[in-house]
């Protein structure tokens, strides 16, 4: 095995540590009994929010590279995505194991008949598939299909935001901020916009060269 592969850049280390901070804070709060007034809801919201933020961070890497030609960030797509899946798993585990205490009749009513939960479930399944196939081995095995499969990341971002919009009361703006960010990130991937950015950059280079 190539030794170089195991060398982490400071940026990667920061991404790993940063992704683990929310989990550390949760464990810290649990250890200290800072559970909030409705602990199940508290940790459901925190894990859900973190999963969404990390998913958007993962989706932000490519556009950041498009805008600033900062190749290093491309290496962060995988860790952010996998950590997003980690938090989504805890989120789901709390829902099934704590909130509904494995009571299948209730879970059926609450999970499979409500659109916000169904959308959450689909998002989670996509993240699961992407996390499993995120290794280099799977990348090699799937060849061209790997790229296609991992395009589903966009869809999962979209569904996660829809999940959020559908579970809050009307007029609560928080999910719409995430929707706006996602929209910007997705639009930065449109070929036309990418071309425009590239030509802008070319012009700027010419200017500085002159």
């Amino acid at each position: 095995m190539n030794k170089k592969k195991w060398k982490f850049t400071p940026l990667q280390i920061a991404a790993h540590l940063g992704s683990l901070i929310p989990l550390a804070l949760m464990l810290w709060d649990i250890a200290n009994g800072n559970l909030g007034i409705d602990p199940i809801r508290n940790f459901t919201l925190r894990t859900g929010k973190t999963a969404l933020v990390l998913l958007l961070l993962s989706l932000a890497c490519t556009p950041v590279n498009t805008l600033f030609k900062f190749k290093q960030v491309l290496k962060l797509r995988r860790p952010f995505g996998v950590y997003s899946f980690l938090y989504a798993s805890i989120h789901f585990a709390i829902f099934i194991g704590l909130d509904y205490a494995f009571s299948w009749a209730l879970i059926q009513d609450a999970l499979l008949e409500k659109r916000y939960a169904i959308v959450g479930l689909i998002t989670g399944l996509i993240l699961l598939a992407l996390a499993i196939t995120s290794t280099i081995g799977w990348q090699r095995r799937l060849k061209k299909n790997w790229k296609k499969l991992h395009k589903l990341a966009y869809l999962s971002g979209l569904l996660a935001v829809i999940h959020y919009i559908w579970l809050v009361k009307q007029g609560v703006l928080d999910p719409w901020y995430f929707a706006a960010i996602l929209l910007i990130l997705l639009s930065l991937r449109l070929p036309a916009i990418k071309k425009a950015i590239a030509s802008l950059r070319a012009k700027k280079m010419q200017k500085t060269a002159r």
Partner: peptide, 10 residues
């Protein structure tokens, strides 16, 4: 958008 069959007592 959600079930009202059960509730969580704080």
């Amino acid at each position: 958008r959600w079930s009202q069959a059960t509730e969580r007592r704080i």
